[in-house]
Design a protein around this nucleic acid. Structure first.
Lengths: 239, 239
DNA sequence: TTTAGTCATTTATCATATAAATATGAATAG
DNA sequence: CTATTCATATTTATATGATAAATGACTAAA
């Protein structure tokens, strides 16, 4: 195993999780037996089993006597688990995955903005404003635009003061990272996008839920439309 | 442990998970040490550790040498995990939790209907229709209304053909169950509600995304408004 | 051909031992 | 008296080896 010799089980969880999301082990495939995994990673069966149990808890695999350890159907995967999302990021996301992310974002973010306009505390507003300032600073090269952009989206989710929306911070972050990868990680966030964010913030601050919702909806829908068109194009090329 | 002597670790996971969601162990609290848990449940430390690892994977606890096993902040809980949702159901949900569920449902379900109208396959439509038929049958006492109702909502999610929406089936099911508990589990789904469902289905079938979205939105918003009013009432009583 | 039973393989659990991490409090230095 | 260092005890982390239970595959009998 790695150098550190700490949290071996956790490391194996990540190795196997990555391999599953990258398709090294596909749905229905059997993983090596506990004994073999132990040999492969040079750890005891105890640690191996703990790793297997953690992946089971995240819904990626099942393990039964005689049948061995198998990757279960992807509908059972805990797609909103932090680790799983990060492993998705390490895979090779395609346009369809990007669309799936955007479709859920379109559902979530306008409503989150709506709720933020209703329930945001002073501290929540400060967080959002902070992210906006960092986005503006980024145009002067003082900060990473994309990172500040992600912070903006996450802080709006938090401002909803709804634990379920807040839990989806990781989902949104992953969605944005994949989006960035597909557009071009070098291209900074545009002025137009920044202005759209400012609009959303203003509506939240002024406690105008519907206006906040609409502003968020417009930008989301625009992004999704672009990807939808790209997919149509892609599919027409195929045939 | 129980009679069966199979999957001891899994049983302990459920016991502890329930206790955490019911507040027996609160956020920040320490659980008994591995050794003590082993004694309490009459299982080996190995099995205990595997249970602890599974709960760790679900984001409920952390376990570090000398520090012991502690319930982590609820923002780290995997609220969309099937098990966690079921444990929530075993707790004592209040109006605020119900509102949080409804707020996310309001975000998800109209968009799911929108997507279903775009992407539903024939088989998906059959599933939805099937649930509707069962709802109608239920008025004659042949079936459980609520169960068929849950099936309807879940089948619309599936029809979106978006894995993220599909993953949220358990969330919606839990939300509906809590909703049923709050209204009155004896009261059957009304004819009006049934008709609203039929409308949504028709729009999906006719591939009218926006109409499907609007229909779903109306019913959702109505439900949320009622709960919001109840909360306002509750809070005015307090002061 | 079917059925019942045997067998081999793999996970599930247990018991015990040692290593590593770390909170706590004592000892020490300033 | 305060801050820092250090020893120690407690708890988790890992390893090892042994036994139990589950189950797919094969075999033999009806």
């Amino acid at each position: 195993m790695e150098s550190t010799h700490r949290n071996l089980a956790q490391q194996v969880v990540h190795e196997l999780g990555k391999k599953i999301m990258q398709g090294t082990y596909k749905v229905g495939d059997s993983l090596p037996s506990e004994a073999d995994l132990g040999i492969e990673f040079n750890i005891s069966r105890t640690a191996t089993r703990e790793a297997v149990k953690m992946l089971t808890a995240k819904g990626l695999i099942s393990s039964r006597p005689r049948q061995g350890i198998k990757v279960v159907a992807s509908k059972n995967w805990n797609l909103f688990d932090v680790d799983v999302l990060n492993w998705i990021l390490l895979g090779k996301p395609d346009l369809y995955l990007l669309r799936h992310f955007l479709q859920l974002r379109l559902a979530l973010e306008p409503e989150a903005a709506f709720l933020a306009a209703q329930f945001a505390e002073e501290s929540d507003l400060k967080e959002i404003e902070n992210a906006l300032i960092r986005m503006k600073d980024a145009t002067n090269g003082q900060d990473d635009t994309h990172e500040a952009d992600i912070d903006f989206h996450q802080s709006v989710l938090c401002a909803s003061n709804n634990p379920f929306f807040i839990q989806l911070k990781n989902f949104i972050a992953t969605a944005l990272k994949i989006n960035i990868r597909f557009t071009n990680r070098m291209i900074a966030v545009t002025v137009a996008e920044y202005q759209a964010h400012v609009d959303i913030f203003e509506h939240i601050k002024n406690k105008e839920p519907q206006a906040a919702f609409d502003s968020a909806m417009v930008t989301q829908k625009a992004t999704l439309d672009i990807v939808n068109k790209q997919i149509v194009e892609l599919e027409s090329k195929k045939t």
